[in-house]
């Protein structure tokens, strides 16, 4: 399997596990590769500091771990950060946090980033949210990025591959109906009884990517979600690995 949604780094609101736990989870669950981005970058003023930290951390594991660069397109010098992540760190995608970094996907400032990602054949990942609003105690509530905004972004940038991370059950269809050709979503927070059976029937297996949201979620939740789903083996393989490797342009591992 290939986990499209892994983070490593600091989280200010509770302890989270790190690289050793990630590698243990992967080894014990037949997960041969993962796309990893910096969790610290969500809260650092300059997310590139988190990208730099993460790139150093995963150097010994480049055979299994692929870096995704967290970029905020309103921060001076983001193009240099983007290119550094691609050229030096081998980044295979870009992660956006419009809610945490306080901009809207519809802002014109995101357009050059979408174009640059498309030029480099890199998917743009948009994180809907990281925490249930009900559990954001003693601080301003960070609302999720809305699925329709993600759908509109995908439609506005048809040459850019867009992957929504953390959408809940019932939300992908509100992004756009039908989903744009360049729009995908991960399994991490997509949950109800029979969620994957429903999603495969509604959207097709090619739109869905296995993701765990490690370390905020226990990765076994999404491993078992996929393993226990009543879907065909080819569909399971597509969701579990093939789709991700196709989008990231990676193979083997």
């Amino acid at each position: 399997m290939f986990d499209i949604n892994v983070k490593l780094g600091h989280w200010p609101h509770r302890p989270v596990r790190g690289l050793d736990a990630l590698l243990r989870y992967m080894a014990s669950n037949d997960v041969s590769g993962a796309a990893v981005s910096s969790l610290s970058s969500v809260n650092y003023l300059n997310p590139q500091d988190g990208n730099d930290e993460l790139a150093k951390l995963i150097v010994p594991h480049r055979d299994r771990l692929v870096l995704l660069a967290v970029i905020r397109p309103d921060f001076t010098g983001w193009r240099d950060d983007f290119m550094r992540c691609v050229d030096e760190y081998g980044a295979r995608g870009v992660v956006l946090y419009p809610n945490y970094h306080r901009y809207a996907l519809a802002d014109g400032l995101v357009t050059p980033l979408a174009a640059l990602a498309a030029q480099h054949l890199l998917p743009v990942f948009i994180q809907a949210g990281l925490e249930d609003a009900r559990r954001q105690f003693d601080r301003p509530i960070m609302l999720d990025v809305l699925a329709p905004e993600m759908g509109a972004f995908a439609k506005a940038h048809p040459d850019t591959t867009v992957v929504a991370l953390g959408l809940k059950f019932g939300q992908p269809e509100s992004a756009a109906d039908p989903l744009p050709d360049n729009f995908y979503f991960d399994t991490s927070n997509y949950e109800t009884m029979g969620e994957l059976e429903t999603a495969v029937e509604k959207f097709g297996p090619g739109k869905i990517l296995f993701g765990t949201n490690f370390p905020l979620f226990t990765p076994l939740a999404n491993v078992n979600k996929l393993r226990m789903a009543d879907i065909s083996s080819p569909d399971s393989q597509a969701i579990g690995e093939i789709n991700a490797r196709r989008l990231l342009g990676t193979c083997g591992g």
Binding site: T218, V223, N224
Partner: peptide, 16 residues
């Protein structure tokens, strides 16, 4: 809390 939630996902809290 099924069917609003998934058996597999929620059981993973204990299994993990």
């Amino acid at each position: 809390d099924a069917p609003g939630r998934s058996f597999a996902v929620q059981m993973a809290k204990v299994l993990s």
